[in-house]
Design a protein around this nucleic acid. Structure first.
Lengths: 342, 342
DNA sequence: TTGAAAGCGTTACCAG
DNA sequence: CTGGTAACGCTTTCAA
């Protein structure tokens, strides 16, 4: 009835007709191919905007093999770090003209059917930032030449990665605590599969041992608030003599749990125990927490990750590249500081 | 050199050749078209799995007009509610075979270039859960027949929506507080553009007024922790006589801020003031907070939202539909309860 | 500097 | 029940 005037979506072909040129010319003009005369280019561009032309990404992909899609894999979202990372990724992808396909978010491995979306939608590359990457997904990427970049995680298989410099960060924290006179340390670990946790833990331990301190205790915190809370309660219940001086929680979210547990048990932070974290998530900065920490340079990390990815999309078979970015020590109030009384 | 044996990706055509049938038959067999004989179907299916056939989504979209893509628009991610919603959406989309394109996350409106992705990638529908939907994006969807479903937000333009029953929730909270003997109430609002905030605020006010209480104060909290914190500090600084008895923060994230500010000012919750929230986000349940609240039935909301969306994708021009799901009152410890001493 | 035509992999329509 | 074939909209040689 009322669709008599089917508006006939504008395509390269319709544009070509209007401009009196070939479709190929339109295609070239629109993407700025240098061998199209300025005059025709302008004419075509004008027509295009006038008619609200929008390239059909599907057709383009089918023909060119490039989709402009990047797969995003996120870790468990209870940790605000991943939410912040996601937001950063979204905002940095827009100006680069890359679209994100959200493949996974949360704990657990990637489902097979999800991994297949990689292939079906001809994803150009993959940005991964979860602890658990199913090996199937990794295989798929590797097997089909889909470049993978990991952010905040060292790669197990064929992939590039950008991480925070865990060693330097952990050392800065250790140095801070040591300078404040602490000697008996505890570490609240993430998971054993978490490369970050392992690296931070080791660097911290080594630095402390080499400088007159000792890590007397290490407890698992599962990279979650609850894990940190449980650990904190355990510390609070220890006889004071055996209790550590200072606690390094390898993630802020766990440090928050530790601090809360201590607070509830009326163990004063930092008077009785100093607590430091790692990551620099927003809630840890709230006045109620004021977690002393090392902040990951999230913006730069995502930016660098996207650089690596686009480079590899443009030029296949580039060698894997690992980049570590230094984090910033942020002094707040859960750790004693040398020469400062509480 | 070593790509001599170009593996020739398996497609419907190659499969057809192997099976000795037409491509159209393969296509039909693979999608379970009933008019293909069981025998051929099985044969083709076997071939397909054997050769690891993966349909090319781009080609399919080009030909069928349906992409299987749903655009996801998320509000500011500082509120864990959106992170939880995202996770829920991701996990519910997978089994339904729908893929998510992450269009936007964070504050601010959707960029135009992002909105255009909607068209370029032939997104089948849009799931929106942010306060700010750029009208441009909405126009684009409406103008191109892309169904839109809003979750946790009432639609301004042409769109369906699923929300929590704000009225019932607010009334449950009001009733609880009234029963505990509170009479002087304050409300910490979200933004004025937030439909949820407005609805909750109004329902709460009406119920309270109708039952012998009074809302003596309403202050903006910007739907953020910081906003709640500022509001809480303000309450703490008020002369006790003028201070409200009980505070309704229209979002848990603000309630957390309120509670922290009061705690820091050594105003006891709930002894001196009761505080209630709304949403049911995970951090508000931590022992350190224990926010009394109404939890939104997130899983059901997302499920229902996806139902509405797929229905509208399958059958265009269905009328807009608004569904409200009742939330659950969760008694924790920031609100006094009738007949209970503190 | 531009044009013509051959795909890209699927689906859908029309026959048979 | 199945086959043929024309789209879908764009890119990309190969020619001119």
């Amino acid at each position: 009835m009322d669709d008599a005037a089917a508006p006939e979506r504008t395509t390269v072909v319709t544009l070509a007709q209007m401009a009196g040129v070939a479709p190929s010319t339109v295609s070239r003009a629109l993407k700025g191919d240098p061998r199209i005369s300025d005059k025709t280019r302008r004419r075509i561009a004008a027509l295009a905007t006038e008619h609200g032309y929008m390239a059909n990404a599907m057709a383009r992909t089918l023909s060119s093999g490039r989709s402009g899609l990047v797969g995003l894999v996120l870790g468990t979202i209870d940790n605000p770090f991943y939410a912040e990372l996601m937001q950063e990724a979204v905002s940095q992808c827009a100006p680069r003209g890359i679209r994100l396909m959200l493949l996974h978010a949360g704990g657990g491995p990637i489902e097979d059917r999800t991994a297949e979306a990689l292939l079906q939608y001809k994803v150009d590359g993959c940005l991964i930032s979860s602890a658990e990457l199913s090996s199937r997904a990794a295989q798929i990427c590797a097997g089909h030449g889909v470049p993978v970049v990991m952010v905040n995680r060292v790669p197990r298989l064929h992939a590039s990665a950008v991480t925070c410099d865990n060693r330097s960060g952990a050392e800065q924290l250790a140095a801070l605590l040591l300078a404040a006179g602490h000697v008996k340390f505890a570490i609240v670990k993430g998971g054993d599969e978490s490369s970050n946790s392992v690296e931070r833990e080791r660097a911290f331990t080594e630095y402390v041992s080499a400088n007159g301190g000792e890590v007397v205790l290490r407890v698992g915190g599962g990279s979650s608030y609850d894990g940190g809370f449980a650990a904190g309660r355990m510390f609070a219940e220890m006889p004071v003599r055996r209790r550590p001086d200072a606690i390094f929680a390898v993630a802020d979210i766990m440090a928050m749990g530790v601090v809360d547990a201590l607070r509830i048990a009326e163990v004063a932070v930092p008077r009785d125990i100093s607590v430091v974290g790692f990551d620099g998530i927003a809630p840890a900065a709230r006045p109620i927490y004021g977690i002393t920490t090392v902040a990951q340079p999230l913006r730069a990390m995502v930016g660098r990750g996207l650089d690596l990815l686009t480079a590899r999309i443009g030029t296949p078979n580039l060698p894997d590249e690992m980049v570590a970015l230094r984090g910033d020590l942020i002094l707040r109030c859960t750790a004693r500081v040398a020469g400062q009384s509480v």
